[in-house]
């Protein structure tokens, strides 16, 4: 395992709150107010680490162990995604490992929502699983599309093959749109969930975290930031991977890194524009949106598989 992989994954972990801070700053600029500074998520995490924990008397051992499991799973997730350098040792990076790590995250979050013995936690958990019931087939269909297009299940090999050239651009664009809708559903973004709501009856993801405080909340917030950054890095590297560095020389690495940051900033601004223009869909209209995305993924596979 080359040292450059470890360094770039550590940079991804350290830079995840910075990405979320710049997303919030972009949304504030679009809405016309000044907004918090870009490093604000770091200050929030440091504040949360210095606070004490308050545990409910009815919770079990899950509340003690789930935050650590969630943080560990999200840190492991950051190590399986390519950032700017793809070498010739394809150790980690199987797509199914990525999908199932995200499933572990979701499962432990739902468990801790149920464990807090409040009604909102159960409601948030049931809504989150309802939406993921429609969103998981899209994730698997996109993984199948990447396999049919590139011939491998390893995300690092897929990035390398896609950066050489794309055989069917029409199918590629449709699968990219389907994957964008999947990102919105998995990471609780608009149009599926409003991440900055304070009304509990409209929450889907935050309702499960309502009862946490102190260190546990800091772990969960960091894992949410990491999951968003890793999903967007996955999109950028699987669908628009031009300019990625295949050799470890200095100028290639620098160009690939700068291109990665530029692509992520463009994706963040698209996300900010979407969150400012649209409102959240009603909960029972979300399956229609996800069924449309399922149809896109199915069409993309049909185009690629039979040509």
């Amino acid at each position: 395992m080359s040292i450059i992989y470890i360094i770039q994954s550590l940079l991804l972990i350290a830079g995840a709150p910075l990405f979320v801070g710049s997303l919030r700053r972009l949304k504030a600029v679009l809405r016309g107010y000044k907004g918090a500074p870009v490093l604000q998520p770091y200050y929030e995490l440091m504040k949360l680490f210095s606070k004490g924990r308050v545990l409910s008397g009815n919770s079990s051992f899950i509340t003690s162990i789930a935050p650590a499991i969630v943080l560990a799973a999200s840190i492991l997730l950051a190590f399986t995604v390519p950032v700017a350098y793809i070498g010739s040792d394809y150790g980690l990076g199987n797509i199914f490992v990525i999908i199932f790590l995200m499933a572990i995250l979701k499962f432990m979050t739902v468990l801790i929502g149920l464990d807090s013995a409040s009604a909102f936690g159960g409601m948030g958990g049931s809504r989150e699983l309802f939406i993921s019931m429609f969103a998981e087939p899209i994730g698997f269909l996109t993984a199948a599309f990447l396999y049919f297009e590139a011939g491998s299940f390893n995300i690092i090999e897929i990035t390398y093959i896609n950066s050489r050239g794309i055989a069917e651009p029409a199918a590629h664009i449709m699968a990219a749109v389907a994957f964008l809708l999947w990102i919105a559903a998995e990471n609780t973004r608009i149009p599926v969930d409003n991440p900055e709501t304070h009304l509990e009856l409209t929450m889907i993801h935050e309702a499960m975290l309502l009862d946490l405080s102190g260190r546990d909340l800091a772990y969960f917030e960091l894992s949410t930031y990491l999951k968003l950054t890793v999903s967007m890095a996955l999109f950028v590297n699987a669908f628009i991977p031009f300019g990625i560095a295949a050799s470890a020389s200095g100028s290639f690495l620098l160009t690939a890194f700068v291109l990665f940051v530029v692509k992520m900033l463009i994706m963040l601004s698209m996300l900010a524009v979407t969150e400012t223009i649209m409102a959240k869909f009603r909960l029972f209209r979300a399956p229609e949106l996800l069924a449309t995305s399922f149809c896109f993924a199915l069409t993309a596979i049909a185009i690629v598989y039979l040509h």
Partner: peptide, 26 residues
């Protein structure tokens, strides 16, 4: 109703691609 429209449209499109396999014009 609802999301079945999109799913049925997707299934039809997949069936079309299977049936018209021999044509190479897009």
């Amino acid at each position: 109703n609802g999301w079945w429209s999109s799913v049925i449209a997707g299934i039809f499109i997949a069936v079309i691609y299977v049936v018209m396999e021999g044509f190479n014009s897009d």
